[in-house]
Design a protein around this nucleic acid. Structure first.
Lengths: 147, 147
DNA sequence: AATGTTACTACCATTTTGAAACTAAGTCAC
DNA sequence: GTGACTTAGTTTCAAAATGGTAGTAACATT
């Protein structure tokens, strides 16, 4: 999983999925955005085996989405905080949540609120160039060598 | 993977990841958005083992993102086409691509263009309520029972 | 000195994945 | 109508990833 050369693949989606394409990594990122930072917080929140958590935190750290930070000298204790790259992953999580909300929305649901307005957010992906909602205008995937 | 009751988890992100939280499913969806529909097209494009492809296509079909459609009576042949739920997954893929573009962008890259303008899209997630870009205003995850 | 906390590692059974070969149902060329 | 080809898979089995339980290391607290 870690030794594949993602740069051989010209697709930015594939490159991202090469190390984030599993459930645990994304749930850890979700929890990190909620505010969790410590090993045991993640472990209890997710019900993940410690072996798995160790591996996933290591990958996320190597890949630059999380950063280890010492929060206590004695005893020496480290926590995991989001980097800029990790924080910039929020839109992905939010869009996943929006899809889940729309298509898997039965029963009680976690919602994401704007702190200032107190209202649930309504996430939409738009193309900043045309201002149009993604999906309303035809798109084309272009290979680097033209196609 | 298929027998877990996702509705026990109130988080729409977790519910979505319960069956889409693997690389192959997302790459199949990407290819479906590019326009591929047939078993062999997916297999060749992804270099995926046929066993895996069969399972993933079955899950995506069961979960309502793809639909089997007969495209030839004699010989009987079926293809897989995106449903509305599958098409609505495009914003997620696009945001993943945007992150990959920004943080894993070395070398030649696949780009996504608006067909009419011919320009590369610049995907941004915004909150339709406030109009603000996701990540620029503080958000809060709210549990269904209030937190 | 005993107990608790935090962040892990070791070990091993189970599950998932991956690779290669094979099959089924038909078509097409001659 | 026989042989080669196409499409959409299945079978089989080895290799890798995952999950669960228990244990450890380094300290603090009582």
């Amino acid at each position: 999983m870690n030794d594949k050369n993602i740069y051989a693949d010209p697709c930015p989606i594939a490159r991202c999925l090469a190390f984030l394409g599993d459930t645990w990594s994304l749930l850890i990122l979700r929890d990190a955005h909620i505010g969790l930072t410590r090993f045991d917080q993640f472990r209890k929140s997710l019900g993940i085996a410690p072996t798995m958590l160790t591996r996933r935190l290591a990958t996320l750290t190597e890949e630059g989405l999380l950063e280890k930070r010492l929060y206590s000298e004695r005893p020496p204790r480290e926590e995991y905080v989001l980097t800029a790259a990790g924080r910039d992953f929020l839109p992905v999580l939010v869009m996943i949540g929006a899809w889940g909300h729309q298509y898997r929305g039965g029963g009680p649901l976690v919602r994401i609120q704007d702190v200032e307005t107190g209202e649930d957010i309504k996430p939409v992906a738009i193309d900043a160039v045309t201002g149009a909602k993604i999906g309303t205008r035809p798109l084309r995937f272009v290979l680097p060598n033209g196609v």
